[in-house]
């Protein structure tokens, strides 16, 4: 009789454990407010990313087309992947003084791992991380970007 009791107890316990699990999924089936997925491309307007989110490196320019990059190449040296390449030139100021400035600030998005080391290394806060994350393009060459805008100048007072 002990065997039969054990047998029935096993069956009962197993069925009870299975029903417990079904209760759980049944709860979620009937409670649609628990749904957590978002319909992504539709919610673009309401999508808020944290300000620290690292999407890509950008160089902010003021309205008068000025940036803060002195061309010190600290970011180029800090980058582990060779993502940044800075080409410098010498600008002659009206007083006739020669001054180092950036010619082109090349940023290879396809090589970037968003490690933030360049931002940390920059002594003048010339570059920062943007929150954009939709980086897909049709040509690989489109991922190589020039960050300084054409005709832009170094901001006054930034050394």
């Amino acid at each position: 009789m002990g065997f039969l009791g054990e047998y029935i107890r096993t069956v009962y316990k197993s069925v009870a454990s299975l029903l417990k699990g079904m209760k759980m999924t049944g709860y979620y089936f009937t409670h649609h407010k628990e749904i957590i997925t978002q319909e992504y491309p539709d919610n673009r307007d309401t999508l808020i990313l944290p300000e620290r989110f690292r999407g890509e490196v950008v160089m902010p320019h003021t309205e008068s087309n000025e940036h803060r990059c002195t061309g010190c190449t600290a970011c180029e040296l800090a980058c582990p992947n060779g993502t940044i390449k800075i080409i410098t030139k010498f600008e002659v100021s009206p007083e006739g003084k020669k001054k180092k400035a950036i010619d082109t600030f090349i940023y290879h998005l396809e090589l970037c791992t968003m490690c933030n080391l360049c931002i940390v290394a920059c002594p003048t806060d010339a570059i920062k991380m943007a929150q954009s994350f939709e980086h897909s393009v049709y040509k690989r060459a489109d991922l190589t970007k020039v960050l300084n805008k054409p005709g832009s100048k170094l901001m006054e007072g930034v050394e």
Binding site: L49, P50, R52, F53, R54, T113, M114, C115, N116, L117, V120, M129
Partner: peptide, 15 residues
């Protein structure tokens, strides 16, 4: 993680 470190998976938060 995203809010504090800036990334979700490969945080690179330690220096």
């Amino acid at each position: 993680m995203e809010e504090t470190c800036g990334a979700r998976l490969t945080m690179n938060y330690m220096v």
